[in-house]
Design a protein around this nucleic acid. Structure first.
Length: 314
DNA sequence: CGGCTTTGACCAGCGC
DNA sequence: GCGCTGGTCAAAGCCG
């Protein structure tokens, strides 16, 4: 058990509960009931992805979870668009996935589209603060001015939230993260941990918090996008994955930890076992059921999660 | 010794 | 204006 897990356990039953704090539950979108092989409803996802993400030139959220096979059961991706789009739809459902390994897994997958300005403000603020701190107190006043300027330009990073049913708090996703903060969340017994990608010039952050409603669920929110391949050092040895330079061929993705296509885990036996029956690959769904309404939906998903699709198409 | 976590302090936004 | 809250910083400590 990780230190963080111990800490989280210590926080248990220390205060009252509220909602998924930063996950806008009212605006979250859930996938319909799924039985049998879990084919992810890519239609619903893609229709929620904003054009900002779609038009991203940096690729996509190139990450994939590597939860402990023994403890992690499932995870759900949701997309917290975090832009000023108006979504009038709100669906909620549960999926019951019959696992080939014998496990029955119940999950709820939501796509969140909650516009939020405070986050971006903090994002810009912190960057400004760091710049100012590097230069000493003299630049502190400049920081204020910069901050005001920055507020005029509210650049919001795309965010993707995943709800993962796992005992592991910090899921392995192939990237290296440095924890830079932990905060107690209002009305939640579980703290929220803040991580930053350790790669230089990569400002991807992620928040990890355990759902108060279901302590077995970990909510991971990624912010921004990696501008570098998955590092090959240390943890990557666990993946037996592609070389860092071979980013496009990586099998690691938000989907890949619960997708079991022959190519997805061909090199990772540990991966295959716990997710052997779960197929949530949207492309797989397209192939099997032709449920994509149009090519743009598929293309959109491809941009969001290229590592899945490159694997599929290779 | 480098990388990472911990943790109290700080700051800005927001609501009252 | 004040208090609350979320997000971040950074010093200190831990660990391999």
């Amino acid at each position: 058990m990780s230190n963080e897990t111990k800490d989280l356990n210590n926080y248990h039953h220390t205060s009252s509960y509220s909602h998924y704090n930063n996950i806008d539950s009212q605006n979250m979108m859930s996938l319909p009931y799924i039985s049998g092989p879990c084919t992810y409803n890519a239609n619903m996802i893609s229709s929620q992805i904003g054009s900002d993400l779609h038009s991203s030139s940096q690729g996509a959220f190139g990450f994939g979870f590597k939860p402990s096979p023994s403890s992690s059961e499932f995870f759900n991706p949701s997309i917290d668009q975090d832009y000023n789009y108006n979504y009038n739809t709100s669906h909620k459902s549960h999926a019951v996935v019959g696992g080939g390994g014998g496990a029955i897994i119940e999950n709820e997958t939501r796509v969140s589209a909650s516009p939020s300005s405070s986050e971006a403000d903090h994002h810009g603020k912190s960057r400004m603060k760091r710049e100012a701190d590097d230069g000493g107190d003299e630049q502190r006043s400049q920081k204020v001015a910069k901050t005001k300027k920055n507020q005029e330009k509210k650049i919001r990073e795309p965010r993707v939230s995943f709800m993962t049913k796992t005992e592991v708090d910090h899921l392995e996703d192939g990237y290296r993260w440095r924890k830079y903060g932990q905060k107690a969340v209002k009305n939640s017994p579980y703290p929220r941990s803040y991580y930053r990608c350790t790669t230089q010039k990569c400002n991807v952050k992620k928040r990890v918090e355990r759902s108060y409603q279901d302590p077995t669920v970990v909510i991971t929110t990624y912010e921004s996008q990696h501008n570098h391949p998955i590092p090959t050092t240390r943890r990557m040895a666990m993946f037996s994955g592609p070389a860092a330079s071979d980013y496009k061929s990586s099998s690691l993705s938000p989907f890949s930890s619960f997708i079991n296509t022959p190519t997805s885990f061909a090199h990772d036996d540990l991966f295959r076992v716990p997710y052997s029956s779960v197929n949530a690959n949207p492309y797989y769904q397209q192939q099997q059921n032709h449920e994509f309404q149009n090519d743009s939906d598929y293309e959109l998903l491809k941009e969001m999660f290229p590592s899945v699709f490159f694997k599929q198409e290779s």
